[in-house]
């Protein structure tokens, strides 16, 4: 029986990437907490995971001249704007730093959890390969 890394790591390998993506998105929200007109964004986890499993990734157009615009076509509908919890604060910014901070911490813990799952799988294989030596 051939050892398939893809089957071994299962869904967790895709989950890890999406958690990374989400961490970046939330970090960006927090960074722009004081930017006028910035709208907070969130990640549609379910959709992103489904697309990652089907291997749909973002494409970018090649730039042959420095003055070309960099165009990136990301998979549809992963990033969505958050529904603001308060009416307009006066500058059009919809970032709630407390909420984002909590989501970021939660995401980091979930990342850790995914890591533990992956580690468990890898150490299981290591144990099988090492025939009980380590």
């Amino acid at each position: 029986m051939a050892l398939s890394m893809d089957k071994l790591l299962g869904i967790q390998q895709y989950t890890l990437g999406i958690r990374t993506q989400r961490a970046e998105l939330i970090a960006n929200n927090i960074a722009n907490a004081d930017t006028p007109g910035y709208k907070a964004k969130g990640l549609d986890f379910q959709q992103a995971l489904a697309q990652a499993q089907r291997g749909i990734q973002s494409h970018s157009l090649a730039r042959t001249h420095e003055k070309h615009f960099s165009v990136e076509i990301s998979p549809q509908g992963q990033e969505k704007f958050r529904v603001p919890s308060q009416p307009d604060t006066g500058d059009g910014n919809t970032v709630d730093v407390q909420v984002e901070q909590n989501l970021y911490a939660k995401n980091a813990l979930e990342y850790e959890m995914t890591m533990n799952f992956l580690n468990g799988k890898i150490s299981g294989v290591k144990k099988a390969l090492g025939s009980g030596q380590a």
């Binding site: 990374t20 980091a108 850790e112 580690n119 890898i122 290591k126």
Partner: peptide, 18 residues
């Protein structure tokens, strides 16, 4: 945020070691 990202990266680098 940067500190947490650092922890996450370190964790990623140690994947499969422990």
């Amino acid at each position: 945020v940067a500190d947490t990202a650092k922890t996450m990266t370190q964790r990623l680098l140690r994947l499969g070691q422990g």
